[in-house]
Write a protein that binds this DNA or RNA. Sequence first.
DNA 1: ACTTTTTGCTACTTTTTTTGTAGCAATGCT
DNA 2: AGCATTGCTACAAAAAAAGTAGCAAAAAGT
Lengths: 107, 107
Amino acid sequence: MSFPTPGKPVRGSKSGNHLMALFDLLGRSWSMGIIWRLHEGPCTFRALQERCESISPSTLNKRLKELVQAAMIKRTLEGYALTKKGEEIFQLLHPLEDWARNWAKDF
Amino acid sequence: MSFPTPGKPVRGSKSGNHLMALFDLLGRSWSMGIIWRLHEGPCTFRALQERCESISPSTLNKRLKELVQAAMIKRTLEGYALTKKGEEIFQLLHPLEDWARNWAKDF
DNA sequence: ACTTTTTGCTACTTTTTTTGTAGCAATGCT
DNA sequence: AGCATTGCTACAAAAAAAGTAGCAAAAAGT
């Protein structure tokens, strides 16, 4: 199993532009949700599945493998956890929360 | 055609948590890429298709309709363009570019 | 006014992703 | 030993995305 690798063709860039590779990775179902939920703390596969409310084990497994390969998630004695890079991505996504709150008002 | 609406069930939240709705929307293929490319300036459907390098018209059309409904994109005399909200989202995504550059070094 | 080009799609089929459900092997607890 | 929990895998079904062709409307050119 592979993940959208910078330097290889990805969605949005035949030459594998790094940003497009990142968009391809984060733009898969549940990617951002998993990172978000994992930030609450390391946890087991099954617990993570529950945090996500409705993810199937097959999808969770696939996404986890990709994110591990992409160095955003690692396995620890306490289960799956964000790496330093994963934590950084979380911090970059963080501002979306407030923005989304505001955005939601219009619906 | 509908988009992940805050307040209604979305991927990651049965109650439609606004952030999960946003993740659902942005986490569809090409969503972030389209926003990114549109920031270069308003343009026509066909031109946007070329900016995206490899998007199919059916997917582009679907994504555009969703993003228009989500108030991130509007139609103008010059073609499709980011709205104020779309521009804000772009600004929030912007830091990902530098991060991705760095991340890419490890592959 | 009429031809040509460009534009914004739609229609349709194929391929890929995601979902949903069942369940099994490994580990740990009692 | 027996039972519960964990981390998955297998498989089928549904949904999303890709790929290709082409048409109707508008714009541009002559």
